[in-house]
Computed example of a mutant assay.
Amino acid sequence: MSAGRLGAAKPSPGKWADLSRRVASTLVLLGIGIMLAVATGVWLRLSMALISAITFWELAAMTGWRNPRLHPGIFGAWRPFALAVIAFMSQAIALGFDHSLAILALFFPLIAGIPGAAPRDRWTYALFGAAIMLVAYGLVGFREHYGLNFVLWLMGIVIISDTAGYFFGRMIGGPKFWPSLSPKKTWSGTIAGWIGALLLGVLLWRLGRGDAMLIWCSPIVCLAGQMGDIAESWLKRRAGVKDSSNLIPGHGGFMDRFDAVTGAVLATMLIGLLTALPAVN
């Protein structure tokens, strides 16, 4: 065997190397959909409180835990866990009490965590933390007031966007959508996600499973989900980490799988504040 052959570089993993991560994302989203289908009442609320706690633990770990001056000794190691407990209890209070002021409990983990975050990350922690708490709260509201099919429509948009974006982006390629934050995301994949969401909206409308608002809402929610993915990529780059955590062995953390859902749910909540939400039967 020649020296050149011995020193040959290993072949690149190829453009489908991260397919398993996409499959993991889809499975997590399907799991959330099944949970929302099965869980009701107190179990639904506790499940979403747990999701809040897990994602808050990851957020806290990315916004200040490396600073020994702020978090010396054992306090630094326990800070993310402590904030996760506060997030769980706060979400449970907000969802468990039928009072307009109960929603203020969503801000407890923000108040508790902002002083301990790294100075440059305090606004980052506050904004992402607010998003985490509002999305879990909003999903319960959508499930109970708009029905399971409405939540499945949201999850379907995220799954279709992610799947279409991945496969069409890899097959067609072309210019990158936002190379400084997401070097693998292409314009072709991004637009494929919009088209997939649009087709889902049209299909539900034509089948009589929803009203015509789905036609324009679906692509907007899709775009918001893509922006959620971009925002989490920015957060990880800012923190200097590849994944939000190692909770899913080989596939990163929960925020990595929940980022697009966050953007989609927040956009849907905003649409609901501005106008009526589409009906999904």
Rank of each mutant, 00 (worst) to 15 (best):
L273V: 13
L223Y: 12
F150M: 00
A267W: 11
G33W: 01
I160R: 01
G129A: 02
F128D: 02
L101F: 14
A87Q: 05
F81N: 00
A49M: 05
A3K: 11
W57M: 07
M62N: 00
F108R: 07
G165H: 06
G73E: 05
T262F: 11
L181I: 03
K184I: 02
V261E: 04
W205Y: 14
G14L: 09
I114D: 05
L29R: 05
Y125F: 15
V158F: 04
L223I: 15
A92S: 12
L198D: 04
G225H: 07
K176L: 14
T186Y: 06
A117I: 10
A53Y: 02
L104S: 11
L198W: 13
S25I: 12
P183H: 12
L44T: 02
M255E: 02
F258N: 09
G41M: 09
M1L: 12
L27Y: 10
A224K: 06
P119R: 10
M1I: 05
A82F: 05
H71T: 01
Q91Y: 08
A267K: 10
D211W: 05
S20Q: 13
G228A: 07
A279M: 08
V151M: 04
R122K: 14
G138C: 06
D256A: 04
L274T: 06
M171Y: 14
T275A: 11
L106A: 07
I132K: 00
S90E: 08
Y137L: 02
F128T: 01
P68Q: 15
W178A: 14
A112L: 08
L277G: 03
I114Y: 03
S52Q: 01
V151Y: 08
K185R: 12
T186K: 06
V140K: 10
L134N: 03
M213W: 13
D256M: 03
R122F: 09
V38C: 08
E144P: 05
M171N: 12
M48N: 01
Y166I: 09
G129P: 01
A84N: 01
I74L: 15
V241H: 09
F254R: 09
I160N: 01
T186D: 01
I191S: 06
G263D: 04
L95C: 03
G210H: 06
R69P: 00
R209I: 10
G96Y: 12
M155N: 04
P115Y: 07
R209T: 05
S47L: 15
W43R: 14
I215D: 03
G169T: 10
H145A: 15
G196D: 02
I195Y: 10
A136M: 14
A192M: 09
L95V: 07
L44G: 02
H99W: 11
G193R: 06
G4E: 15
G272A: 00
S161G: 14
L134M: 14
S25Q: 13
S2K: 08
L101Y: 13
F177A: 13
M89Q: 07
S182H: 08
M227L: 13
A224Y: 10
Y137D: 04
H145I: 13
D243Y: 09
L154T: 03
K176G: 10
R21C: 07
D121H: 14
L214M: 01
L50R: 08
G196I: 03
V202F: 03
M255S: 05
I160F: 06
